[in-house]
């Protein structure tokens, strides 16, 4: 089934999602990848505020290519999520509600997803041109010096994702391939 979701999310809306559900996300999400996660982690160590409110928010693991004139953003598909695993449980415990990326997560991230009622979505890796058409605007809100790795506020409409790890910890990367293992 396909569910329309508005971001930021409510915990109730996220709780209803099951691994394998297809969703179309509309609203505001934030891009951050390796270098931005490292900086956010260091900011938290120093007791500083983060560049965006974690509670209810989705972080999109993505570093775009430069915008082609006439478009708000360049190619904008997901990067491999596991590189952010080291930083993710802390963010989830502070209220981060959802992540959009691709690829498997660590047991620690699984635990933090269940503990906090969060959700992990996958977008189709390598479909960055197509996904860019669902991004209506993009604005750098922090760490501009990081270039493609800066944190961006993205306004998305009907951004297509699939629920990979739901709030109960069910993981589509474990269950779906098993059905086709010969």
């Amino acid at each position: 089934m396909t569910v329309s979701l508005s971001a930021p999310f409510s915990r109730e809306a996220l709780k209803k999602l099951k691994a394998g559900d297809r969703v179309l996300i509309s609203g505001e999400i934030f891009s951050a990848r390796d270098a931005a996660h490292k900086r956010m982690d260091e900011a938290l160590d120093r007791g500083e505020e983060l560049p965006f409110k974690l509670s209810g928010s989705a972080v999109y693991y993505m570093g775009p290519s430069p915008a082609v004139p006439g478009h708000p953003i360049g190619s904008a598909g997901p990067t491999t999520s596991s590189r952010m695993d080291r930083y993710t449980p802390r963010l989830l415990d502070l209220g981060l509600s959802a992540m959009i990326g691709k690829g498997k997560r660590s047991p620690e991230v699984h635990g933090a997803i269940v503990r906090n009622g969060a959700v992990y979505f996958a977008a189709v890796g390598g479909a960055g041109a197509l996904l860019s058409e669902r991004i209506l605007s993009s604005e750098v809100i922090a760490y501009e010096d990081l270039g493609t790795e800066a944190i961006r506020r993205l306004t998305v409409r009907d951004f297509p994702c699939i629920v990979v790890i739901d709030s109960t910890g069910a993981d589509l990367y474990e269950t779906a391939p098993a059905q086709y293992r010969a």
Partner: peptide, 28 residues
């Protein structure tokens, strides 16, 4: 797999958008 087919169809669609709009196939 139905999900697999739809992902592959999106990848083919992505190639069309990339070529027509001159947006890289993948951001990486």
């Amino acid at each position: 797999s139905e999900v697999g087919r739809s992902i592959l169809a999106e990848l083919e669609e992505n190639l069309k958008v990339a070529e027509n709009e001159k947006i890289p196939i993948c951001q990486d």
